[in-house]
Design a protein around this nucleic acid. Structure first.
Length: 677
DNA sequence: GATCCTCGAGTTCC
DNA sequence: CTCGAGGATC
């Protein structure tokens, strides 16, 4: 059956409606009709074209995914070469000035001429793609290739939803070749990978590789499954079109043709405004929704662009200022283990040095065995490295597809690499530890470094290099030995002059008057960090009170539970530890007076309170700090050790507990009267 | 007993 | 910064 005039009209109407909706949705990011409505129209057009193939046009929205897989890509010779833009290393304000100065010099401008106008744009992290429109219809898409000859990828380009199959104009140029970047949004990347992972298929390494892989798919159906997007930023061959006078107007014109043009572009005057753009984009970078490498500065006036011309195939009128990559690929050269001060065995990946996030990374921690297994990192693997948040390099995961033959899973050593003691991994714990204790030189070094650390005794000048030498030279075995060091001994060491040696000795002397909590923290008792050390100091006032406290007494300290209490008593029950502390104290420590939990109020000091319900005037926090300031303690649940339960409105089960255990229950006025007694 | 929150410990590079 | 573990809370 032949298509009627009505069928032709209907197909035309459907095509226009769908094209308009897709333009609003993909290119302008401003949907005009619901997705379901789009699907309905789409299926209607599909049905119509199926029964009347002569109604099918090359620009029909149904033709985005079509055609059989290719055997190979056909080469495409670019009429106008696809050049790359010179990438500058100096991306500071000075770099922008250098570019501007070069432009002005070439244009023979003098200081009295006004600032040069530039268009600042984003540098997208994807794959360059040229789209050729003849009389407004997309006829060919090609990759950059070597710049002279690329590959024809028309079928794949048609699957990019934001690429118009037909320009939105009534008088299209005879030939309009658009240059731009195909890329994958982070959302599409995540969605695709989630789907692949769920199906047990290989995932993409990053959006950039996703874009490159998708465009170079021989089967357009596979390409369509990896959704790409597109931004136009320039031109190739043109016939029958009056070129706009500036880059800014050109991009506006491309947008008017219905091509996607990124809106983060700014016409600026002079180099300082270029640098401002760079800075502004750096801030916005993470929220863009897609990856960029940096920014591109282009001389805005086209006649000036022509005047500036090219030098060794790079335009002299444009420059790219990159941002440091946030993720990079590199290879695992080895996985070694480090022994920490507590004996913790930490696997560390030695990496082929790679520039990421602005620095060269060659090591990254793998934390523990579970982590290595979860990320499945092996020696020889290609891995994704990232600088997490701020600074610390992290192995995101291994790229299993690129794993060479014959790799093996990482295994923990059974013996400590430093002292050959047995390595143990307690049941249910993530961390394996060397059992060597102070026999292990790695643990001894770690202990000494912790002792000297900034938040501990803060011994300036005693860093890892010096500790290393002191231990290896048998000058120092334990912390107390530090205080017997002489200026002469120190001055003989590597990288230690007379001056440094003198200042280290002076530091050691000074440190004897540190606050008590620093000393307690410096001892390196397991589970006793800075905060707990402060609590202990405040609670007990002297080092000997802490040393002689039993578990019950320790439980009264803030944030000390059974495990921490046991750890502290265990530490001081050990004769070696006690003696080591005594030897240290004998070096002449005199602690600055401790600001105790002023037990000024005899009624409250040492008592345990439990708060329940809502008090009429006091907030929970206020009551708590009042009690603590007076030397009392606030507990969470009622036990026979509880002195008072302070009950307010809507008191809960704690009130019942108090009555059952015979603990005194008071209200707010009674509570306040305790402070005035 | 489950869940939330805080602390401790280990770590990178310049 | 990150993870794991201990303590507090509900």
């Amino acid at each position: 059956m032949f298509a009627t005039d009505a069928d032709f009209k209907r197909a035309l109407v459907l095509r226009d409606a769908l094209t308009e909706a897709a333009h609003r949705y993909y290119t302008l990011d401003d949907p005009s009709i619901p997705d379901a409505e789009y699907d309905r129209l789409f299926r209607a057009l599909q049905a119509l074209e199926a029964s009347h193939p002569e109604l099918q046009t090359p620009d029909s929205p149904t033709q985005r995914v079509g055609g059989a897989p290719l055997a190979a890509f056909a080469p495409v010779r670019h009429a106008v070469p696809m050049l790359s833009i010179r990438t500058e290393t100096d991306v500071t304000v000075a770099g922008a000035h250098a570019f501007d100065a070069r432009v002005r010099r070439e244009l023979k401008l003098t200081d009295s001429d006004p600032p040069v106008e530039y268009l600042a744009e984003l540098k997208f992290d994807g794959l360059a793609l040229a789209l050729r429109y003849e009389n407004g219809i997309l006829v060919r898409a090609a990759t950059r290739g070597d710049g002279e000859t690329g590959e024809e990828v028309t079928l794949n380009a048609r699957t990019i939803a934001s690429v118009p199959l037909k320009l939105r104009t009534d008088s299209p140029p005879a030939v309009l070749e658009v240059r731009g970047e195909a890329y994958m949004t982070r959302a599409d990347f995540d969605r695709y990978n989630d789907k692949q992972r769920a199906a047990g298929f290989a995932t993409l390494v990053n959006p950039r590789n996703g874009a490159a892989g998708s465009i170079r798919q021989l089967d357009p159906k596979l390409a369509a499954a990896r959704p790409l997007s597109y931004f136009a930023y320039g031109l190739g061959e043109i016939q029958g079109w009056q070129l706009p006078p500036t880059q800014a107007v050109l991009l506006d014109a491309l947008a008017a043709f219905g091509l996607p043009v990124n809106k983060e572009r700014r016409a600026v005057a002079g180099p300082d405004e270029l640098a401002n753009f760079h800075r502004d984009i750096a801030v916005k970078r993470d929220s863009l929704g897609f990856d960029i490498d940096g920014v591109v500065y282009k001389v805005n006036r086209r006649d000036w662009q022509e005047q500036l011309g090219f030098v060794s195939r790079e335009p002299r009128w444009a420059v790219a200022h990159k941002f440091p990559a946030q993720e990079e690929l590199t290879r695992v050269l080895a996985i070694e283990v480090q022994v920490g001060r507590t004996g913790a065995i930490t696997p560390v990946a030695r990496l082929e040095p790679v520039f990421v996030g602005g620095v060269t990374v060659s090591n990254a921690t793998l934390h523990n065995l579970d982590e290595v297994r979860r990320k499945d990192v092996r020696v020889g693997d290609t891995v994704i490295v990232r600088r997490a948040g701020d600074v610390i390099p992290e192995v995101v995961r291994s790229v299993v597809e690129r794993r060479p033959e014959g790799t093996t899973e990482f295994a923990l050593p059974t013996h400590c690499p430093e002292c050959s003691s047995i390595v143990e991994r307690p049941e249910g714990e993530a961390i394996a530890r060397c059992t060597g204790g102070m026999i292990c030189s790695a643990q001894r070094k770690g202990m000494l470094l912790h002792f000297a650390a900034r938040r501990a005794l803060n011994i300036e000048g005693l860093g890892d290099k010096l500790v290393e030498q002191l231990v290896d030279a048998n000058l120092v075995h334990e912390a107390a030995d530090l205080f017997t060091l002489t200026q002469a001994q120190l001055a003989g060491l590597d990288r230690m002059g007379d001056k440094s040696a003198t200042s280290v000795v002076a530091e050691l002397e000074k440190v004897k008057h540190a606050e008590l909590h620093r000393f307690i923290f410096a001892l390196g008792i397991r589970h006793v960090g800075e905060t707990t050390a402060k609590d202990l100091a405040k609670h007990f006032g002297t080092i000997h009170a802490v040393m002689n406290a039993d578990e019950n007494a320790l439980l009264d300290v803030n944030d000390v539970g059974p495990i921490v209490a046991a750890s502290i008593t265990h530490f001081f029950a050990n004769e070696k530890n006690r003696n080591a502390v005594e030897r240290l104290l004998a070096c002449g420590f005199e602690f600055a007076p401790v600001v105790m939990n002023a037990p000024t109020n005899a009624i409250i000091a040492g008592k345990t309170f439990v708060l329940t319900g809502t008090l009429p005037t006091l907030k929970r926090e206020d009551a708590k700090s009042m009690i603590e300031a007076a030397g009392g303690k606030v507990a969470g649940s009622v036990s026979k050790k509880t002195s008072y339960v302070v009950a307010g409105a809507e008191a809960g089960t704690k009130l019942d507990d108090a009555q059952r255990l015979g603990v005194a229950v008071i209200d707010e006025p009674e509570f306040l009267s305790l402070f005035n007694a």
